[in-house]
Design a protein around this nucleic acid. Sequence first.
DNA 1: GTCTATAAATGGATAGAC
DNA 2: GTCTATCCATTTATAGAC
Lengths: 197, 197
Amino acid sequence: MTTNTRQQIIDYSAELLRARGYSGFSFLDIAREFGIKKASVHHHFPKKVDLGLALCDWTQAWLEQGLAHFEAKGTSNWNKLERYFKAAQKHTLNEQLMCPISAFHNDLPVLDDSIRERLKALGNIELDWVERVIEQGIEAGEFLSTSAAEGSSSESSARALAGLFIFSCKGALYHARLHGKDMFHQTMQQFAALVRL
Amino acid sequence: MTTNTRQQIIDYSAELLRARGYSGFSFLDIAREFGIKKASVHHHFPKKVDLGLALCDWTQAWLEQGLAHFEAKGTSNWNKLERYFKAAQKHTLNEQLMCPISAFHNDLPVLDDSIRERLKALGNIELDWVERVIEQGIEAGEFLSTSAAEGSSSESSARALAGLFIFSCKGALYHARLHGKDMFHQTMQQFAALVRL
DNA sequence: GTCTATAAATGGATAGAC
DNA sequence: GTCTATCCATTTATAGAC
């Protein structure tokens, strides 16, 4: 019955991570939640790094499941991006939770190298996904292809557009946590106005 | 001679704030730097909030001086934006320092309300500046004016573009701290490609 | 798997002497 | 302005009994 305590700890920690950041929660927080002692939490995760790495696994699953969900068949590529930022908006603005990648990222200075490496990989999964969607969108004539100078079909343009999309989205969400959602909506709308054909 | 200890503490704290965030430095760090004891630091700033608010003042001066510096006369409006993100790039990528506003922002959950209020004002100063530059740029025909539908000259468009600029810039810098500078350059170039006429 | 007990360090803060 | 001394709370972590 209590065999899944480990998993429950991970799930609850993920919530704390997204609400307060990596250094914002402690073994005591977790112990209290499950009515056990700190030492018992250490039984499941000897060091906080162990828990942190488990949270990286959790984040990867969360991310891959999310991205797959945005790719409902039959939708336009813009619609995929829209699903992405609507989900982000819901988490940040309604549920007051950070994206777990950003939550880790905020505590970059205190993270172990092993976690930093995982974090890099996670960031790349996300960026690659956006790039692929935009690349397909350019080929389908949904999006503007800039720097259409030489022969590099749409590759470099797609990655740069992906950067503009994902960073403005994350930056705007970050801003919204303190200033409210208005600028987030304006910014995403502006991106659409500039890039959609 | 030691009358300016207070100011020296503020200056050094600003460095620590930008390197490690608000919760990333302690009174002990400061005491060590000046060869004094923690209690002596508390003499200058009874509570950490007091130091935090002094750092908000410092940040405002830093910001206003920076923005004024980007407005060299005779430069184009694009050039002003370029100076802005080149400076940001230098701080983040060369000096490994965060913008103090972002540094505070990272620790949002643990900040006192008084600091949060100051932080909001600081964010608005920055955003207003970018908006004004872009507004002038649109009027001068330097930048594209989207959503050129009704009579709202260039106002709403300028603010939305300002959001896209500043959030993509900050988001890309954030990303660069872990992943390196490549995407930052691509992203800023992409913004220019889309918006400059 | 969970407990008690404990260690060792850190962080914010205060009282009162010099 | 700075010091010693001290307090209290928190956090990560370990040893060993049940």
